[in-house]
């Protein structure tokens, strides 16, 4: 496709390329797997007790439970490599999603504010999330989870400084 009325060539425009993206901390994958582990452990335990009491046939829940477990392991491990963020001179991008891929870029001159958040599991793994907000409503925001806390703080300060230049 061409934009012939422009005095710039499309091919000369900077592209958001895969190679620019940084992956997330490996610990973030382990954190997610831990969260899922807790979920599967608890559901497994509840169903087991149920079955031991004799009111639930084992394979009735064990088959879908195991299938879901395998599926989630697959999506998490395979999908982890897709998650990543990229910071260029004038914008920040985040991508994720194995089955439903999504990539969002926010120019620094449109950032409303930026903050660091950390949940209880995140604290245990020393991981934090950087949240970048625009005026475009919640679906347009970027949340980069799975950064070392110190790095997240630095990133936040960096983004805040860059976006402040535009105000």
């Amino acid at each position: 496709m061409e934009f012939t009325n422009q005095n710039i060539e499309l091919s000369t425009l900077p592209e958001v390329e895969d190679s620019d993206f940084h992956g997330l901390e490996k610990d973030y994958l382990y954190m997610r797997l831990t969260a899922w582990g807790i979920f599967f452990f608890i559901t497994g335990l509840v169903f087991s007790i149920w079955s031991l009491l004799g009111s639930f046939t084992w394979w009735h829940w064990l088959a879908p439970w195991a299938a879901l477990l395998t599926f989630i392991l697959f999506v998490e491990i395979k999908g982890f490599r897709i998650k990543g963020y990229s910071i260029r001179e004038k914008d920040i991008s985040y991508k994720s999603g194995l089955i439903f891929f999504s990539m969002t870029s926010i120019p620094f001159n449109r950032i409303q504010h930026c903050e660091v958040g950390q949940g209880p599991l995140g604290r245990a793994f020393d991981l934090a999330a950087v949240k970048v907000y625009t005026a475009g409503g919640s679906s347009s925001d970027i949340i980069i989870r799975g950064l070392q806390e110190e790095r997240a703080q630095k990133l936040r300060d960096y983004i805040t400084k860059l976006s402040a230049d535009y105000e």
């Binding site: 439903f100 999504s102 969002t104 926010i106 449109r110 625009t134 005026a135």
Partner: peptide, 29 residues
């Protein structure tokens, strides 16, 4: 007037080489 953009691509779209674009403004997307 745009705030930012997003590109979405499900596995069904990937197979056919397609993508969906979402444009965000301060008055909805």
């Amino acid at each position: 007037k745009l705030q930012n953009v997003s590109l979405k691509r499900s596995i069904f779209q990937r197979r056919r080489g397609l993508s969906t674009l979402v444009f965000f403004t301060a008055a909805g997307d």
